[in-house]
């Protein structure tokens, strides 16, 4: 069973993502903001982290930078970034910072599920 962490401040979207992933063979943890996500990563090794870009306390970008700088065991975890902003430069910024995948909001749950499935197979 692959372990997935969802960090998203909008409760409804969090529910949408976790419900989407329900069918697959995943164990899902949820975080309300960047800081909580980091705290969870401190304790557990994940296979995939789904991050929202705009989050309070710590943005998705902050989280990526911290994780990639090796502050916990998830240094090399796969990261999928979700963002409402679709500007090209933002996508680049996120990928440069160390995200592996980028998905624009609003997203299709089925596509997300498919993507997550692919990533899980790779890992």
């Amino acid at each position: 069973m692959k372990k997935i962490l969802i960090a998203e401040d909008e409760e409804i979207l969090r529910m949408l993502i976790s419900d989407t992933l329900e069918d697959g063979d995943f164990s899902v943890d949820e975080a309300e903001d960047g800081e909580e996500a980091l705290q969870l990563m401190e304790k557990k090794q994940y296979d995939l982290v789904i991050l929202d870009y705009m989050m309070p306390v710590l943005t998705g970008l902050d989280v990526i930078r911290k994780v990639r700088s090796g502050m916990n065991q998830n240094k090399d975890v796969k990261i999928l970034m979700l963002s409402a902003k679709s500007q090209q430069n933002e996508q680049e910024e996120v990928l440069n910072a160390g995200a592996d995948y980028f998905m624009v909001k609003p997203f299709s749950p089925l596509q997300l599920l498919e993507k997550v499935g692919e990533i899980a197979d790779e890992v």
Binding site: L16, K105, P106, F107, P109
Partner: peptide, 25 residues
């Protein structure tokens, strides 16, 4: 623009996402 984009996309993402789930599951 950025705020509107974010503010509009968030509910839109829910509407689209849940509709898709309803249709496909």
């Amino acid at each position: 623009v950025s705020t509107v984009s974010h503010e509009l996309r968030t509910p839109l993402a829910s509407i689209l996402g849940f509709s898709e789930l309803l249709l496909n599951r």
